[in-house]
């Protein structure tokens, strides 16, 4: 079994005991956004997915899993890359759940949902998620969740808002850039993962 895969499963297992609270967060989103299929879609992809993505860091701090990672026969590089792999898995999971719930909500409300609107939402949420993770993870890996949680949450949002303001980006304008946004999201994530795995490959 590949080391990154094993480490990803380890992150998943560290988070698994807290699944009830994640389901409660999802349930809260469904209740709040039930009347807005679009809002539900965005909420799961842009709020729930990043929230879940950082959970391995929070639990690692809480349970001293950094020591476990240093004791297990697995490279630090694999553990670091697995954080990113976990994030992508979480994003895809949130996307599937979010899309399904949004579709159901749209049916209930009698709204149209799908096609170009769905593609736009998926691509933009992916780009936002990717930038979020790409900025947050190096900070969380370097300083730990407890020390930089707030900064790591605020910084990517500030960067995204600044970029949107400077480039005069709107959702309509975003449609023109859609393919580029999708690729850029993936590229940012890959660059962040590669740099992080290289820069922080040595312990302490």
């Amino acid at each position: 079994m590949n080391a990154v895969f094993r480490a990803t499963v380890l992150h998943m297992r560290s988070v698994a005991p807290y699944r009830t609270q994640f389901l409660l967060v999802l349930a809260l989103m469904v209740v709040l956004d039930l009347r807005s299929p679009t809002g539900l879609m965005v909420a799961t992809a842009v709020i729930l997915a990043p929230y879940l993505a950082v959970q391995p860091f929070q639990i690692a701090d809480k349970a001293d899993l950094t020591t476990l990672y240093a004791v297990l026969p697995v490279t630090r590089r694999a553990v670091l890359l697995a954080y990113y792999a976990w994030a992508v898995v979480v994003y895809l999971g949130a996307l599937i759940v979010g899309t399904a719930l949004s579709y159901v909500a749209a049916r209930v409300e009698g709204d149209a949902f799908g096609g170009g609107q769905l593609t736009t939402l998926l691509t933009m949420s992916w780009a936002l998620f990717a930038v979020n993770v790409a900025v947050q993870f190096p900070l969380l890996i370097r300083f730990g969740y407890t020390r930089v949680n707030v900064l790591a949450t605020i910084l990517p949002i500030a960067l995204i808002m600044l970029a949107a303001y400077k480039l005069h980006l709107t959702i309509d304008a975003g449609q023109v850039w859609l393919p580029l946004l999708g690729v850029a999201g993936a590229a940012v994530l890959v660059i962040s993962a590669t740099l992080t795995a290289h820069v922080f490959r040595h312990p302490e």
């Binding site: 297992r13 005991p17 349970a63 001293d64 020591t67 004791v71 026969p73």
Partner: peptide, 20 residues
């Protein structure tokens, strides 16, 4: 890291998730 196959580490606290 294969060296860690042969080493067991016991600390004064666990380094496992408390809920496991």
């Amino acid at each position: 890291v294969s060296l860690r196959q042969d080493v067991g580490v016991v600390l004064d606290h666990t380094y496992f998730v408390g809920e496991w």
